[in-house]
Computed example of a mutant assay.
Amino acid sequence: MTADAPALVASLSARGATLATAESLTGGQLAALLTSVPGASVCFVGGVVAYATAVKVSVLGVSPATVEEYGAVSAECATAMAVGARQRLGADYALATTGVAGPGQQEGHPPGHVWIACAGPASVETRLLTLEGDRAAVQAASCRGALSVLDGMLRREDSVLG
């Protein structure tokens, strides 16, 4: 089952939890998708579009050493973006997207190479997506992938809580 924004907004709102975003290749589309849901203001606190690596470092607190060692298109950078957004925006959860939308390669990665991270109260999860299609298709699929990672984290937390 594919996670959708209305269901996630409802789930977060019901548990009194908040969400932030840190986006690179999706350029704010993930935040727009979430805020298109009526009532999203109950749980969505804000987002950072950190398209440039310098913004990932200066605004989200990604370590320059992380970028130097792993690159901006990496699990490590996605994790740091999500953790940084969670901390700086005071959210319970944060989703981050970083990758290559195309048309060209970045850091040796082809278009469609995307890392998603979700930082929650107890853990951080990452997922590598290998997507196909044009720039718009990669961005849209990245947003869906991010929602799926959050949905999985919330479902696992629900199963642990009983």
Rank of each mutant, 00 (worst) to 15 (best):
residue 137 A to F: 02
residue 49 V to Q: 03
residue 127 R to L: 14
residue 45 V to P: 01
residue 128 L to W: 07
residue 115 W to V: 07
residue 40 A to D: 13
residue 13 S to G: 09
residue 76 E to V: 04
residue 35 T to D: 13
residue 108 G to H: 04
residue 115 W to H: 15
residue 124 V to W: 06
residue 118 C to V: 14
residue 158 D to S: 13
residue 48 V to Y: 01
residue 153 M to K: 06
residue 104 G to F: 00
residue 49 V to E: 08
residue 48 V to E: 01
residue 157 E to C: 05
residue 71 G to V: 06
residue 82 A to E: 11
residue 57 V to A: 09
residue 92 D to P: 07
residue 142 S to H: 03
residue 55 V to E: 09
residue 111 P to R: 05
residue 69 E to Y: 00
residue 152 G to K: 09
residue 120 G to P: 06
residue 106 Q to D: 04
residue 65 A to F: 00
residue 148 S to G: 15
residue 60 L to V: 07
residue 80 A to E: 15
residue 45 V to K: 06
residue 79 T to G: 08
residue 29 Q to C: 13
residue 155 R to G: 03
residue 15 R to P: 01
residue 86 R to V: 04
residue 95 L to K: 10
residue 126 T to Q: 14
residue 103 P to Y: 03
residue 22 A to P: 08
residue 97 T to V: 11
residue 17 A to Q: 14
residue 112 G to W: 09
residue 24 S to Q: 08
residue 72 A to R: 03
residue 29 Q to T: 12
residue 71 G to K: 03
residue 97 T to Y: 11
residue 122 A to D: 15
residue 99 G to C: 12
residue 52 A to S: 13
residue 27 G to K: 11
residue 62 V to H: 14
residue 61 G to S: 06
residue 150 L to W: 04
residue 93 Y to H: 14
residue 135 R to I: 13
residue 58 S to P: 00
residue 15 R to I: 01
residue 115 W to Y: 15
residue 110 P to F: 00
residue 17 A to C: 09
residue 104 G to K: 00
residue 130 T to Q: 15
residue 100 V to E: 11
residue 143 C to P: 01
residue 72 A to M: 01
residue 48 V to I: 12
residue 126 T to D: 07
residue 40 A to F: 11
residue 120 G to C: 02
residue 89 L to G: 05
residue 41 S to N: 10
residue 135 R to V: 14
residue 26 T to E: 13
residue 38 P to W: 02
residue 153 M to V: 15
residue 158 D to I: 00
residue 37 V to E: 05
residue 26 T to S: 12
residue 22 A to M: 06
residue 42 V to S: 14
